Amino acid sequence: SGEEFIAMYTYESSEQGDLTFQQGDVILVTKKDGDWWTGTVGDKAGVFPSNYVRLKD
């Protein structure tokens, strides 16, 4: 389980282990570690910068 966040911006990365997503995607955040959080979008999982998302209303 985790908290749902909304992507405010598209995040694209070629780094292994990074979670890429489109603006407006719902991200289920499973771990918060400083500026880099872990989460899932659909069947993808990985880390992403926390300043790209906001808490879902």
Rank of each mutant, 00 (worst) to 15 (best):
T30R: 05
D57A: 07
G46V: 01
G39M: 00
T10N: 14
D25W: 01
K32H: 14
D18Q: 08
I27T: 03
M8I: 06
D43M: 11
G39W: 00
R54F: 01
G42F: 05
T30D: 07
G46N: 00
F21V: 01
Q23C: 12
G39R: 00
G24Y: 04
F5P: 01
D18M: 14
M8W: 04
G34V: 02
F21Y: 01
Y11K: 03
Q23P: 07
A45W: 12
G42K: 04
G46W: 00
Q16D: 10
G24H: 06
P49N: 06
A45S: 15
G39V: 00
E15Y: 11
V26C: 07
V53W: 01
L55M: 09
F21M: 03
F21R: 02
W37C: 07
T10F: 04
G42D: 10
R54G: 08
W36A: 10
L28R: 14
V29C: 03
E4H: 05
T40L: 07
Q16Y: 13
Y11I: 01
G17F: 02
S50C: 10
A45K: 05
S1W: 04
T30P: 02
S50L: 01
K56S: 07
Q23E: 14
D18I: 12
Q22S: 13
F48M: 02
T30Q: 13
P49Q: 05
D33R: 13
G17S: 11
D25A: 07
D18V: 12
A45D: 13
N51D: 09
S14R: 13
F5W: 11
L19A: 01
Q23N: 05
G42S: 08
F5G: 10
V41N: 14
W36R: 13
D35R: 09
D18S: 15
I27D: 10
K32F: 04
S14I: 00
Y52C: 08
V29Y: 02
D25K: 00
D18W: 07
L19H: 01
N51F: 07
F21P: 04
G34T: 08
T10D: 11
D33W: 01
L55N: 08
K56Q: 09
K31W: 03
T38N: 12
E3H: 05
Q22P: 01
G39H: 00
D18L: 10
E4T: 04
Q16F: 06
D33I: 07
G39C: 03
Y11H: 11
Y52L: 10
A7V: 00
E3S: 08
K44D: 15
S50E: 01
Q23M: 09
T30E: 05
D35W: 14
M8F: 02
E15D: 12
F5R: 04
D33Y: 13
L19D: 00
K56C: 14
F5I: 07
T40A: 14
K32R: 07
Q16S: 13
G24S: 05
F5M: 08
A45N: 15
T30S: 06
S50A: 15
V26E: 12
F48P: 06
S13D: 03
Y52W: 02
Q22V: 11
E3Q: 11
D33K: 06
P49G: 01
G39E: 00
Q16C: 10
V41D: 15
D33G: 05
T10L: 00
S14M: 11
S13R: 05
L28I: 15
Y11M: 09
D25R: 00
L55Q: 14
T20C: 13
K32A: 02
V41W: 04
W36C: 06
E4I: 11
T38K: 05
Y52K: 04
S50V: 04
A7P: 00
Q22G: 08
T10A: 06
T40E: 15
D57P: 10
I6A: 07
I6T: 13
Q16W: 07
E15P: 04
Y11L: 09
S50G: 10
G46D: 00
E15S: 14
T38E: 13
S13L: 00
T20F: 03
S50K: 06
I6H: 04
L28N: 10
G46R: 02
D18H: 15
D18N: 10
D35K: 15
V47I: 12
I6K: 05
D43F: 05
T38Q: 09
Q22W: 05
T40G: 03
D25G: 00
T10Q: 08
D25M: 04
L19R: 01
F5C: 07
G2L: 06
A45R: 13
S14V: 13
E4P: 05
V53Y: 02
T20W: 06
V29H: 02
R54E: 14
I6Y: 06
W36Y: 15
V29G: 04
T38A: 11
T38M: 08
